[in-house]
Simulated scan of single mutants.
Amino acid sequence: PLACATALATLAVYEDEDLINRAARMGKELTKRLQGLAERHPSVGAVRNIGLFGIVELVRSRNPYTPLAPFNGSSPEMAALGRHFREEGLYTIVRWNNFYTNPPLTITEAEMDEGFAIIEAGLAMTDRAPTARSPTRFNPDRGSRSMKWEPSMATPTTTRLDVPAEVGTITHFIDNKPYDGPTARWGDVTDPALGRVTHRVAFADEALVDQAVAVATRAAVGWRQSSLAVRTRTFFAFHALLEKHRREVAELLTREHGKVLSDAMGEVQRGIEVVEFACGLPQLLKGEFSENVSSEVDSYSIRQPLGVVAGITPFNFPAMVPMWMYPVAIACGNAFVLKPSERVRRGRSPRRRVQCRSRGQGDRRRHPEAPRHRRRQLRRLDAGGPLYL
């Protein structure tokens, strides 16, 4: 009750103060200021935002694209920038070669001007950062304090991605193939970097969800009878194909989610690690047996598939979070229905194709991907309790 009351009070503030419309108006102001940073400062490699949620990428050079700090690391310049922000009273996230511009929804133009004045002063320091061709000492304030720059910190990374010229369509993936039936509702998939629609995604109705669940139920019957050796070989093949196509998946995440390519590659890698774990699941699926736990009483346990299981995943980690779920579920002998975020659907499509190829086109032991849906009930094959979506 307390949590619900808090949520309702928060929603009331959003409505009373018109914060959603305010965020849209102030988001346009943020866009202009971010674009101004890119025009004035050579150390700004890219800027983008959706409303009041923005990010700035910093570089040593734009061509070739050389991040100011390596992926999952830092550099003297980024450390100095973060220290400058804190000393001047600007508290934001400084991570790798990025810093975020995510002010509160109640921010005023005067407060935004004050914050960007601090950012401008900080970027004046990063503009003096040495490039990969000039490994000199970096002086953030041109005073007595100096920080040594390591050449290994500048690793050129190409992030230019081809952008589709036409608006494509993304449909559901059911019964090992794209769904080509009628669709009444569609949504837009927008490239955050360009601010334009690149694809339209199909939304499902209740009947189509029932169809996906029925296919999963049929597939689960055969797949649960597969030996552990067959499941292991399947996931080793799946792992090899994911490694081969990892950049393709990461580029899709960058186009649809807005992550920098290095961040997207890291997300895909963390998902692949779960697939590696699934390859070793036969060792973890062993049961237990205890003899004479009581007089002439033995105790044993076995692990069996549930049948059809499901996952509903958010947009912020469109590759990693689904891969936390379906590799383990399928390796355990279940069929899996996935309802991904409609905002970043294509980040999963290469894995769908990869999974189909690894199992063979004629194999009935496969799992479908569920579309966007209303609340539905899935029954387990072992007649257990219901699982709600």
Rank of each mutant, 00 (worst) to 15 (best):
G27P: 05
G385M: 13
V321S: 05
D113G: 03
F53G: 07
E288P: 08
A12C: 00
N176R: 15
A46T: 03
A24H: 04
V337S: 09
T159E: 11
E57W: 02
V275D: 04
L30E: 10
L123N: 04
I302N: 09
P182R: 03
S134W: 13
E57V: 04
A121D: 14
R270S: 07
H239M: 08
T169N: 09
G362R: 01
P104S: 14
G187A: 00
L284W: 11
L105R: 08
T254H: 07
E15T: 00
L208N: 03
A38S: 03
L252D: 05
S299R: 12
G82L: 06
G384F: 12
R62T: 11
T108Q: 07
N176V: 09
M265T: 00
G271E: 01
G384I: 12
E39C: 06
G82P: 11
T106S: 12
R60C: 10
R145T: 14
R379Y: 13
V221N: 11
R255C: 03
M320K: 09
H245Y: 11
D205Q: 02
R95Q: 13
P318T: 00
Y179P: 06
F85G: 11
A250E: 09
L90S: 06
L338G: 05
Q377I: 15
F116S: 01
G181R: 07
F173C: 03
A7R: 14
L81D: 05
F236Q: 10
N63Q: 14
A278F: 04
R137A: 15
M325C: 02
L253W: 00
R353P: 01
E276D: 11
T198H: 02
P282E: 06
D180K: 08
S74K: 08
P42E: 08
G271Q: 09
I50L: 07
D188P: 01
N316L: 05
R224V: 05
V59T: 08
E15K: 00
S226G: 01
T217N: 13
V321L: 10
A69R: 05
L30K: 02
E276I: 03
T108G: 02
H367S: 13
A124Q: 08
F173E: 07
